[in-house]
Amino acid sequence: MKILVCISKAPDTTAKITFTENNTKFNENGVQFIVNPYDEWYALVRGLELKEANGGTVTVLNVGKADNDPVIRKALAIGADDAVRIDADTVDALYVAKQIANYAKSEGYDMVLCGKETIDYNGSQVAGMVAELMNAPYVSLASKLDVNGNTATIEREIEGGVEVVEVATPFVLSAAKGMAEARIPNMRGIMAARSKPLNVVAAIDASNSTVVKGFSLPPAKSGCKMIDADNVAELVNLLHNEAKVI
């Protein structure tokens, strides 16, 4: 079983979000970067579980520059066999998807596993784009994945419930809560990660389709209006007459 897990670099969930260059660039100063949590906890760990049960390999793939390598090494420490970094500045989701799809097609993976979205752009785009470019089935927001030969049974979230689908390999999946439990790399894994292969490959020419023009921060809340615990009726009054939400 040949498994490709796409990982993205993301700012730590508790990072302070600020911008530079006239609010056009994320300020990376002092920010700690991590493997995007959905890619790591759900996609990578489930990939490793499938490999442990069925044999095969797990390769992690990242599109980015050399400053992503420490984050890629972390995925290797968790247990991936090898890593590939496609050497490119990530322009937008479609650009990244074209890089991934091109690589995945040429290497013949049985499945491409991604997280449901990154915690920076929250786009939920790349995995679906990769599937289309590979002309493969795509199951989004998957909470369960089992593979039997060339067929996978996948549960995915839908409005107020769950849908069970069956797809033929190769397929692309975006993983959400329920897929697997987070693993913490142990010392042996961290040591082993140093000597695992991290292959850097050149990017293909591809165009982008979107450009970020600028960022802004949400206006500060005007402050919380405190209501006395003995005057609950006043809260109801405010919600009804001031906020007009009940």
Partner: peptide, 17 residues
């Protein structure tokens, strides 16, 4: 979330989600 990214790649059309 399932359909729009596929369509974006199919049409090579930019997507804001």
């Amino acid at each position: 979330k399932s359909v729009a990214p596929r369509l974006s790649a199919k049409l090579d059309a930019g997507l804001v989600s």
